[in-house]
Simulated scan of single mutants.
Amino acid sequence: MSSNTPPSFLSRIAIAIGSFFAILGNGRLAADVTRLRAGEALAADVAPREIRVEVPVEKIVEVRVEVPVETIVEKTVELRVEVPTDTAALQLLGLLQREARFVDFIQEDVAPYTDAEIGAAARVVHAGCRKVLGEHFTIAPVRPETEGARITLPAGFDAAAVRLTGHVVGQAPFTGTLGHRGWQVTQVQLPQLTDPQAAKVLAQAEVEL
């Protein structure tokens, strides 16, 4: 049954009997019934009134705090391992011996041999030495001009790279004929040594069993 449908007669009798005893035992309910009988509206029938309560709210203030941050800088350190000059020289001799039998050729007394025999051996040594230079050194001319060209050396020229010959008089600039372009090493790529002391052995002794 819907809440808006009036109760039946029998239901009203039951409600009346129950309300009678309830009013006797509850003074507040009796007062509500009295107001209802006087024509006053029930609390449920009265539209609720909007009650506005102002609650103080703390003002939120945005504060910007700058915190110093430590900057981490990665620094690359280039570690250069310098090979001692004497070790590098021994290493070069070892390469020339291995590829060109250079030490064997120089240590040999060539006086008893004919020019043809020496020339044949020199050809082998030459090919091996050329191979070593090409694989481990980058070699370029000191002067870019062709040999026989006339050049002028200004004041302050590099005396370590250019050698004056002939009749040298006065101060630079000098003008002369290029007799030799010169050679200079621009890059060295020697193998990495695991035992520098081993570089002293230019050629191992061979024992045939």
Rank of each mutant, 00 (worst) to 15 (best):
Q91E: 09
E70N: 06
A116C: 02
H126D: 15
I118T: 12
T34D: 07
E50R: 07
I106H: 01
A127I: 00
A47N: 05
G148I: 05
E78T: 10
A111Y: 08
R130W: 01
A116R: 09
C129Y: 08
Q107D: 15
V53E: 09
V77C: 01
A100T: 02
V46P: 03
D109R: 02
R64W: 07
A121W: 03
V69C: 07
R101Y: 14
H136S: 11
V65S: 01
Y113E: 13
F137S: 06
V83L: 15
E50F: 10
V73T: 11
A140V: 12
I60F: 04
A122R: 05
E135I: 03
Q97K: 02
A100I: 02
V73W: 00
T76V: 14
E40G: 06
R80I: 14
T71A: 06
E66N: 05
P84C: 06
A121S: 09
E40L: 12
R98D: 11
H126T: 11
A38S: 13
L96R: 00
Q107K: 13
P84M: 04
A111C: 05
G39C: 05
V81C: 01
A116E: 14
Y113Q: 14
A43N: 06
E70D: 12
E66K: 04
T146D: 10
E62H: 09
R98M: 02
V67A: 02
E82K: 13
D115W: 00
E66S: 06
A122V: 05
V63E: 09
C129A: 15
E135M: 08
T71V: 11
T138Q: 10
R123N: 10
A149S: 15
G119V: 00
E145T: 06
I60W: 01
E82Q: 12
K75Q: 10
A43C: 07
I72E: 15
V57P: 00
Q97D: 14
L133T: 11
R123S: 14
T114N: 02
E78I: 03
A88L: 07
E50N: 04
R150N: 04
L42F: 08
V142T: 15
A88Y: 09
E99Y: 10
A116P: 00
I139F: 08
A89K: 12
A127C: 00
A140S: 04
A140H: 01
D45L: 11
L93W: 07
V81E: 13
V81T: 07
R123V: 12
R130D: 13
V110H: 14
A47R: 07
